[in-house]
């Protein structure tokens, strides 16, 4: 369980929040504090007040995969192959194993054909897929994804989503503006002006929001139509 207690940081004000393992979607209006929360969970910032604990450890003490909301700002190296291999090389894994794992992970993410490419020549979607593969190659316990799906077509996003759920990460914390994706998550955290507006299973969170555009379109249109 991830425990957040008395968090006060920039726009965020969160009293007590416990996030169980599984797939948690963070959603809400632009500027509502989603990225700030995700950065705290990834250990990239320390809260001004309050505490965050991953089971019995602090965020920085746990292996974490991270994808920034700006695709171009996820790139450390000039080559896709170097990008993908970096977490393994930083972990001092032998070269043969690095090469094997990079091949497997690239295949898994559908970016094998991009391995010899320069990172700045990739399209937005390709950059996102590369970042995601890099975030997952070290098999992290926590995966923090900041709106990576907004640069993907629905076919690719759905396929990648299934793979993410199958990645073995214990906690997947994903920010998205796709309500249908939120509807499929284990739980949804709806943030508004830095505060938790609702948190729980999608059915509970969206139950009072039928008139709001956040209500999943597949639920709205699917009911009674078989779509």
């Amino acid at each position: 369980m991830i425990h957040l207690h008395g968090i006060q940081h920039r726009i965020l004000e969160i009293g007590d929040l416990s996030i169980p393992p599984g797939h948690t979607v963070v959603t809400g209006w632009n500027g509502g504090g989603k990225t700030t929360l995700l950065r705290l969970l990834a250990g990239l910032e320390l809260p001004k007040a309050g505490s965050i604990m991953f089971e019995d450890r602090k965020p920085g003490d746990t292996e974490c995969g991270w994808v920034n909301e700006f695709p171009g700002r996820n790139m450390l190296f000039s080559l896709v192959r170097d990008e993908l291999s970096s977490p393994l090389r930083f972990a001092h894994i032998p070269c043969d194993e690095v090469a094997r794992k990079v091949g497997e992970c690239a295949e898994w993410a559908g970016v094998s054909h991009l391995l010899p490419r320069r990172t700045h020549t990739l399209s937005g979607g390709e950059q996102v897929l590369t970042s995601l593969a890099t975030a997952l190659i070290g098999r992290p316990q926590i995966l923090v994804l900041d709106e990576f799906d907004s640069y993907l077509d629905h076919g690719t996003a759905d396929a990648i989503d299934e793979k993410i759920l199958d990645s073995g990460a214990r906690y997947i914390i994903q920010c998205t503006q796709n309500p249908d994706l939120a509807a499929r998550a284990d739980r949804v955290l709806l943030l508004s002006h830095g505060r938790v507006h609702a948190f729980g299973p999608p059915r509970d969170v969206f139950s009072g929001l039928e008139r709001c555009c956040y209500y999943p379109p597949s639920w709205r249109l699917g009911r009674g139509t078989g779509l």
Binding site: G28, W29, N30, E69, G124, E147, S150, Y151, Q177, P179, C212, C213, Y214
Partner: peptide, 13 residues
């Protein structure tokens, strides 16, 4: 080019 990416549903509407 991708004008909707990153916008919330209210802004998309």
């Amino acid at each position: 080019d991708e004008p909707f990416s990153g916008l919330d549903c209210r802004q998309k509407q």
